[in-house]
Design a protein around this nucleic acid. Structure first.
Lengths: 197, 197
DNA sequence: TCCTGATCGAACCAGTCGGTTCCATCTTGA
DNA sequence: TCAAGATGGAACCGACTGGTTCGATCAGGA
């Protein structure tokens, strides 16, 4: 029975629902770990609907990654902004937010980086590069406002801590990766600022 | 023509050759990016030979990862040992060695972590955890010999830099991830030691 | 009211996957 | 010299893949 009686036809809402479901499933099982058929079943839609909206699995993956990158970037920037004006407090807030993420059930590392690891080609690799660039911008801006001697260099080093913590939290049992990264980040910030004065 | 005339029959050598070839191909293309048939073709062996030696693709992957973890661990430990007795010099040597690895053509991140990202289950996840643990041991021992106030904590933070540099070098264009990590590591080591004295 | 279009369900396609089996052929070691 | 074992080559299996197409059905806008 096509088009279940009583359902509402809203293509935009359908598209958003597909994206939301696909993001969860692809993150949990990997880009190659789940087929189109299962994706559609989980989303409760037919293959034809998915293909009218996205055209191919690759395009669906691309849209999922773009959306995820946007969301995560804004979420981290918000965490920093909500911490007030002190750069050190903002930096601590970023890693605290990461820590809460790491502790969530189903955490599996950064979806964008994971995707680029699985499909080491465009578009995943391009999106990953831009994603890391966004992180770098956020961290560098904090470093700049903190008055670091070399804000760009400090930003790059903070990025290493952020990505390292994500990987370690994913693959090495035991909590605390975010807390370690937070302390290391504050230490680096401290020495970079002190050295300038 | 089975068993090419003039060839030498040496099961151990065959097994080693399969492992070597598989390691390269699986690293370059991903665990799910290459099938058994192509693997055998690349190694120049038949499927029956591969299955007699390893029994399944999963087991082959397991053996490849174990071997790789052993090799990489020893290689990094050697780099540290060759740098002399000064812990700071050993730490710098570790990140310098990483930097040379990052610059090699075909670098694609840490094979072990990548594998665990693709197959987020045993045995890959188990091997990855042990692999990171080995890194942690190496870095903690350097921190201990440096006289850090809290060698375990410093070791964990250095591990974040090591893994972060590997990820960033893989996914963010532009060199210097290893150099950044090196400077950050020395800064962390410095402040951890100074604070104690 | 009625037509456009969104949707489902299912059948279907060619291709690939991991894995198994058979047999002829060749080497190796006893 | 000869048996045991390693290997190549090829055919084959069932399952699954991403992707296409069709017709039936129903909601929504004109």
């Amino acid at each position: 029975m096509p088009v279940p009686t009583g359902s509402s036809l809203d293509p935009d809402r359908t598209r958003a629902a597909i994206l939301r479901t696909a993001e969860g499933v692809l993150y949990a099982r990997g880009l190659d770990g789940v087929g189109i058929a299962e994706l559609c079943a989980t989303a409760g839609i037919s293959k034809e609907t998915l293909y009218r909206h996205f055209g191919s699995k690759d395009e669906l993956v691309r849209c999922v990654l773009e959306a995820r990158s946007d969301r995560v970037t804004h979420w981290l920037a918000r965490a920093a902004a909500d911490a007030g004006d002190d750069p050190a407090a903002q930096l601590a807030a970023v890693f605290d937010a990461l820590g809460r993420w790491f502790d969530e059930p189903g955490f599996r590392g950064c979806a964008i980086v994971n995707a680029a690891t699985q499909h080491h080609t465009a578009p995943a690799s391009t999106i990953a590069a831009r994603h890391l660039g966004r992180y770098l911008d956020l961290l560098t801006s904090i470093a700049t406002r903190a008055g670091a001697a070399d804000p760009a260099a400090l930003g790059r080093r903070l990025l290493l801590l952020l990505e390292g913590a994500t990987v370690v939290a994913d693959h090495l049992e035991g909590p605390g990766a975010a807390a370690d990264a937070r302390e290391a980040a504050l230490a680096l910030l401290n020495s970079a600022v002190k050295r300038r004065a």
